[in-house]
Nucleic acid binder design. Structure first.
Lengths: 351, 351
DNA sequence: ATGAAAGCGCTAACAC
DNA sequence: GTGTTAGCGCTTTCAT
């Protein structure tokens, strides 16, 4: 059984006794073909197991179609949801998706963009790791780029990269909601476990401060800590915080890694949740519901973000980022990890 | 600023004052070019922001390169790890990966295969949902297909689809290890929460039975239950089991959905873990460590499986599935959710 | 070492 | 309605 090469349009044309243009018309749906001819062509194609080559078509049309998707890490639950959303939308629209993970490394991200450009993808969706400089070139390389779930780091005020639209979760709204919830429970010494400066723009931290200010609760700088986005750093930050300030009654973690760290440290310190400390976090990952007590969290619509971004990149390549980022609503999922604050407490790590 | 079309090899040739063949040679590394000429070409290319079109190259070479990856669900932690592994390997080898999710639907899976074939990918890696019939055609459509992390359902004995290699976790070994561990703790009434018949071949269940038999522990049919792969079905199965048989001292869940259900049901029934029931599961997902007590689990090397599958599909398209599936070792991660059995117990769901 | 030319499989004008 | 033809951007003999 020799592995013969795939049938081409020419084979089908010959076998059906028609010209190749007719075959093309049948498969691309363009032009008009008589029903009889169409049937003959279809029959021949089926017999030959013919499948139009996206390569030939793409070359002629000078675009391969398809979109590129760059995330930091496909195993991160939020990224995975976002990927799933993009896949859903692309499938609906009949496009394929080339996925790659940049692991937060701008250089690797740049390489991926380069490869995607070589593939002549129709658009790129990215949760960017690099900064403005890294993406300035990329935007030129591909007709349409959209950022999803995250924007470029940089000064708070101005837009990120000119003309790159983005679709994001309303993090500020989510953080405000959970902060108000915590304050409403009676908390006054709320700690914020956030990401390091220099990383993505700290909209969560800013929203936290703003919410506190609005509620008339003074912000204690000592309670706002930042960690690098890694498990050990997150744990260290959480441990440092909870040991240093035995009087915090609630911890708001800015992402699921930080939330995990908070839960682990609380357990290590024999702090009961929520009796001794309330814990809440951004990102409603699967374990939030499984842990004991289940964790109150701000759910970001990762799937919707991906879907929307894909729509943007595929359907509206013209309209570029006009009107600022698309903000999708978050939802505060209240579970058992937050309660009213308790009298002063002071603990240190055992051992 | 007009969005002019990308530079072609012809533009570069003209700009560098050489023939297009020379430019081709420079970029494909084939043939020999004088250093001086190479530099001129490179300079011209840089100036024009030239990037070879994978389309043109692919058409000429009659293959687009790249590989297709089909999983049931990218948000499933195991699938995500597998995807990450494939991505790692493909990146190393300079190939791109088209990913799509079939959601366990054979029809959707077939469509995806069809699309990938149209893209003329160099190979396909799949965690298959369909059965032998569905894949018989696919294998013909693409020169190299490999199954990863799962094989086709079907009769236990014979190979699955002729000539389709596969790389799998050693599930049987993992289940045997955890079963022996449980038995070693003193458990005699161990329940098995598995997948429905008709789904993937029940190697876990078979391994469980075999291990029990080997240990001289009689298998009670009543303690071996199966659920459809969905949260509600898993929960129902776990609840039914634990209520019906208040005397089980340990539960072995065949995947993380089932494990989740077991944990939730145990909590609902006010069963202390591991004092009242020990719980262990296959799949060492993130929450296993976060839940209280942390769950003992069989870790499957999802990432390695993906990596290996990618190597197989890319490097050894010739050697097709000779010597049966590649089996990668699992690891029993012992945490706090299993302990010695306790005296008889009898509980029912409150309300 | 380098250039000219022939296609790879397809679509889009343009004839008929 | 249908066939013919000219490329799309590239690799690859085959000359030079």
């Amino acid at each position: 059984m020799t592995d013969r090469r795939p049938a081409t349009i020419k084979d089908v044309a010959a076998s059906a006794g028609v010209g190749i243009a007719t075959v093309s018309r049948v498969f691309s749906g363009t032009g008009s073909v008589s029903a009889a001819t169409r049937d003959r062509v279809l029959a021949a194609a089926r017999a030959l197991d013919y499948r139009p080559s996206a390569l030939g078509r793409g070359l002629k049309l000078r675009r391969s179609g398809g979109i590129g998707l760059i995330v930091p890490d496909v195993t991160d639950p939020f990224c995975a949801e976002l990927v799933a959303g993009v896949l859903d939308c692309a499938r609906t629209l009949g496009e394929h998706v080339i996925v790659d993970a940049a692991d937060g490394d701008p250089a690797r991200e740049a390489e991926i963009v380069e490869r995607l450009a070589g593939q002549r993808v129709g658009g790129i969706i990215a949760m960017p790791a690099g900064d403005e400089a890294d993406w300035r070139g990329a935007a030129r390389v591909c007709s349409s780029v959209v950022f999803a779930g995250r924007v470029l780091p940089g000064p708070p005020g101005p837009p990120d990269v000119p003309d790159v639209p983005s679709v994001l979760a309303d993090d500020a709204g989510g953080v405000r909601a959970v902060t108000e919830y915590l304050a409403g429970l009676g908390h006054r010494r709320i700690a914020f476990l956030g990401a390091v400066p220099g990383g993505p723009p700290r909209v969560r931290e800013r929203a936290f401060r703003a919410a506190l200010a609005e509620l008339g609760v003074p912000v204690e700088e000592d309670l706002v800590v930042a960690a690098r986005p890694a498990r050990d750093a997150a744990y260290a930050a959480a441990a440092g915080l909870l040991q240093r300030r035995g009087d915090v009654t609630a911890v708001l973690a800015a992402d699921h890694l930080l939330g995990e760290a908070a839960v682990l440290v609380a357990r290590e310190l024999d702090l009961r949740v929520p009796a001794d400390v309330s814990i809440a976090m951004v990102d409603d990952v699967a374990w939030a519901e499984l842990c004991d007590p289940p964790l109150t969290a701000v759910a970001r619509p990762g799937r919707d973000i991906g879907y929307r971004a894909c729509e943007l990149v595929l359907r509206e390549p013209a309209r570029r980022g006009r009107g600022g980022p698309v903000l999708l609503p978050t939802e505060l999922v209240v579970r058992g990890s937050c309660g009213p604050p308790r009298a002063q407490r002071r603990r240190t790590l055992a051992g």
